[in-house]
Design a protein around this nucleic acid. Sequence first.
DNA 1: TTACAGGAGCGAC
DNA 2: GTCGCTCCTGTA
Length: 328
Amino acid sequence: MKITLKISPEEYKGPFNLINTIRSGQTSQPAWFYKDDYFRELINVAGKPCLVKISQRSCKKDSTMDIVVECPENLEEDVIKARIMEIFGLNDDLNDLYEYLRSDPMLEPTIKFCNGLRLFKAHDVFECLISSISSANCSIIRWNKAIKDIKMKWGDEYKFPSGTFYTFPKPEILANVPEHDLEEMQRCEDNLPEDFKFTNNLKSCGVGYRAKYIIKAAEMVQTEIELDKLGNMSYENAFNTLLKIPGVGPKVADCILCYGYGYGYGKAFPVDVWIGRIVSELYFNGEEIKPQKVRQFGMEKFGEHAGYVQLYLFHYARKSGLLDSLKK
DNA sequence: TTACAGGAGCGAC
DNA sequence: GTCGCTCCTGTA
């Protein structure tokens, strides 16, 4: 059945820009599929797979969101709305954030370049974990494609009037997929034609050497790591727990806490080379600083706003040309 | 064509 | 604990 609803600017604090939020490359999930003015994704709402389509009328910032939900049975509007509010960071108070950003001359310019940009939270923390592992040492385009490939190959397929969508596979599925084409070949008992292309393995999705990390991560979340409990731990505890997973270092762990769990972990400050260069340029006269120091600096200086500050600094640098100037 | 960019793992110190 | 090499793929 089909449910339509709206979320108006009066329902959240500060501006919201849907396109920028979805396309900002946050590792909670790949960008949603875009067609005919609507961004689309299959979301689990109250245990039901629903196709959620969202459009923000015209390009005007702060404009109302039009939402169409296709789901197998009737769902409370409030439940759907709460889920969407959570995913798009609409419970975060951006007026409060902007007041904070304006108090620092280095951060103040980020506001006009990132207006309405919000944390894009995971709708599936396991997907966020694997997305974040895949993003390491990799471009946004590449890891987005990899995750979409994984969903198509091993996710559950759901057909809706407006198209076919896939869930992110459960850990027990992903833990058992072949790592590379040799392993896939060994598992085939049939007589295959000589020129058969092996494409049902993780490496064929473009994750490269991270394939073995992904499989191991999928195993670990079924045994020693309980993703559901991470959200209730102290930040340090959750961070150290995530570091046990292969392929998860400090940057990836912070991304998972920031985008996967949001709320309590506003102080996570994911540091990649770009954030390192930006922080160095803005606060240390371009002097080279080690990532660990940048992380410590970010967490101490920006406190509970650290996650948003890193998001805003990166996009400000991208759009203002600062990033290009740092490449030289 | 080859060189390099991008985080994390790993072995050497 | 820190250094430097390696992993894979896309891009220049």
